[in-house]
Design a protein around this nucleic acid. Sequence first.
DNA 1: AATGAATGAGCTTTCATTCAT
DNA 2: GATGAATGAAAGCTCATTCAT
Lengths: 223, 223, 223, 223
Amino acid sequence: MEMTTAQICAGAGRFAAGADPVKRGQILDGAKRVFMKLGYDAASMNDVTREAGVSKGTIYVYFQSKEDLFGALVEREKSEFDAAIQQILSESKTVEEGLRRYALAHAHFILDTEMIPTIRILLGVLDRMPTLCQRFFASSPTNIKLLLQDYIAAAHEKGELSVEDTDLAARQFIDMSTAGYFKKRLFNDIPVRPDDKEIERVVESGLRMFMTFYAPRKDETSA
Amino acid sequence: MEMTTAQICAGAGRFAAGADPVKRGQILDGAKRVFMKLGYDAASMNDVTREAGVSKGTIYVYFQSKEDLFGALVEREKSEFDAAIQQILSESKTVEEGLRRYALAHAHFILDTEMIPTIRILLGVLDRMPTLCQRFFASSPTNIKLLLQDYIAAAHEKGELSVEDTDLAARQFIDMSTAGYFKKRLFNDIPVRPDDKEIERVVESGLRMFMTFYAPRKDETSA
Amino acid sequence: MEMTTAQICAGAGRFAAGADPVKRGQILDGAKRVFMKLGYDAASMNDVTREAGVSKGTIYVYFQSKEDLFGALVEREKSEFDAAIQQILSESKTVEEGLRRYALAHAHFILDTEMIPTIRILLGVLDRMPTLCQRFFASSPTNIKLLLQDYIAAAHEKGELSVEDTDLAARQFIDMSTAGYFKKRLFNDIPVRPDDKEIERVVESGLRMFMTFYAPRKDETSA
Amino acid sequence: MEMTTAQICAGAGRFAAGADPVKRGQILDGAKRVFMKLGYDAASMNDVTREAGVSKGTIYVYFQSKEDLFGALVEREKSEFDAAIQQILSESKTVEEGLRRYALAHAHFILDTEMIPTIRILLGVLDRMPTLCQRFFASSPTNIKLLLQDYIAAAHEKGELSVEDTDLAARQFIDMSTAGYFKKRLFNDIPVRPDDKEIERVVESGLRMFMTFYAPRKDETSA
DNA sequence: AATGAATGAGCTTTCATTCAT
DNA sequence: GATGAATGAAAGCTCATTCAT
């Protein structure tokens, strides 16, 4: 089959069907803006079309359906999130310092990024797209906890902490890192995240409570 | 059943238009099942019609619109929740006992009732129905925290606790009461609530951490 | 069958089904207000219910359907109109005086009464209710013309007018009586009828034109 | 048929969204048949769909709503009417000839075109769509009268007519041009327009009456 | 006879998806 | 490959009519 003029104009032929990563990213960028602003159902494919600057047909070349597009978007958000999480807890002199860095990083992630709106939308469609939601929730937030749990377990081994149930301890520490601010943001109780100082204050308080409870007691070790 | 002449003359209708509480409840029950199962947008008024066993027109006698119906449903959930919350913290011998009862009640409420699915749906439409969501979130979950905060402040006055920031402390305590189980349920990480024993274990751990940190220190009082 | 308490209360039994003329009139009065204000389709039976102060069921005792109610209303308007028309042209000394009285009466009827809104609504449903419309239009407006035509024919017989085509002459005279004001009101070009003086002026001008043309010419009769 | 590279690159669509005049006309044609047959309210968008041979969605690409579609239809009727009106009164040797041509053109327009059914429907929705109706009525029928009024005024200046009130004279002449046939058609008293001969007869009679009354009197001029 | 809550067909309108160009 | 006009199922909602009381 000959190459048509149209193909030349469009610069077609360099990629397999729906495989141009730039265009794909462009569509996802538009979709992100639309979905974050309107939610899943209220966002129409025409909105995405407009925001992404591509035609309806093109979207359906790259994505099979609205749900597929949304799934790909969530997957991308998750990847970015996961990548960022890896850089935490790398090296720290003391357990306390490690936990502090972790708590701050976690709090900023949750409160700074597009996490909150993404989570809201996902929860709204959880019953209809259980697999998609599970892929997101069972990975990203869980990853965070597993990383921390390993860290706490290691500290326990080294005698720097005294923790029986590392799973519970990790969950407790995570929840205290944000101490209600996650819910506050999720429920839109506060329109923007608290400032850095407030985050630090909350983290510090939680950290001290955690250390007070889980640090090995002197009299126990001496006895 | 006897009827007075007045009643007969007043017409057969026992209630003003759209005011029969039984039928209203019947519609809300059907709507609840549908909304909880499908979410807000995916649930159609025809679904509600079928599930509630009433006709389309009847629904629109009792509720102005789909959004109004959903709002009424949320309002009812909230009321039931609020009513239950009032019965906590009534009387307890010690602070620790009071906090324990509170934490258990809170955990059971959050995890037992229809709270989680309701919250999911609300979050999915938060951008479109900010007022409705605010009415729910700013009241029920906030009520819980305010009650607890007052309780903690009173305990501080009596010297039974040593808490500078009662707001922070209340949020910390609440988040620790469920220690991740709220998120786990919200994100559908676990399909049902943990059993009573597990809840008690988590509550107990959180309580001890809280008391360890916020109980007045002996050396402080003696000094 | 025994008489129920309800029947006693309502004073029922005095009339056959749907035969209480007072209630019937009450319904028609309400229907008239509603239909005149909203038109046929935009008016709902609930509107009529509210305006007439009777229940839905009652309306359907007196009238078989919405269309039937509207038909009855139109019939009543027509009757009132016809009755009024009869009182014109009773006695007058001269043809000119007779025609003047006729033109004034006609103009006032058309422009004063509920004729205009009634006609508007009827025209809007003419294709759906041809019989109803024909009964109205083929009677009331036609009656007017026939009366006038007879009068003109009589005048011609008496030599007071010289009219070959009395049908045409009657139509010409009628249209000139309002000289555009009928259209102006029908098309809502003017929101209210012109004042009495203007009506008189228009009628007088038309009358003179008519007489100038149709009065027997002196030279003809003498020839 | 050749296509330039630019056309191909610009995409397959030959027209902007909802701008294909052929399709637009096709929809309007279908809508016209439906509205003329059923009236505004009784005509459903599904009827239009069927009659126009396009899908529901397509109609809503070209027109925002049912009312908008109807408005566009009315606008088109008006345009055709207005365009035709402009060609009257262009040149005529005598006033009488000019008036005759005008009257014939006017009568044919009113009675031949879709004017009558259009007017019927508009009157039926006048209360609900006052602006739309005003745009139609205040323009087309008024245009006709203004044209004629100017013509009569010019004739008065030239001494070919003796008319004090040109506004009244124009209205009188117009009403006499159809002498009841406008009403007869509007009220569906006659199912089709009268034949050409009858129209000519009526026009001629009206014209003579008008000239007899408004032509300058010899004795006046001589005096 | 009178009531008005209930019905459900049918309305206008939207939007994910397709396909001729 | 890209386009966007066209599709038509399905949505939320209304309202003439019925019927148990």
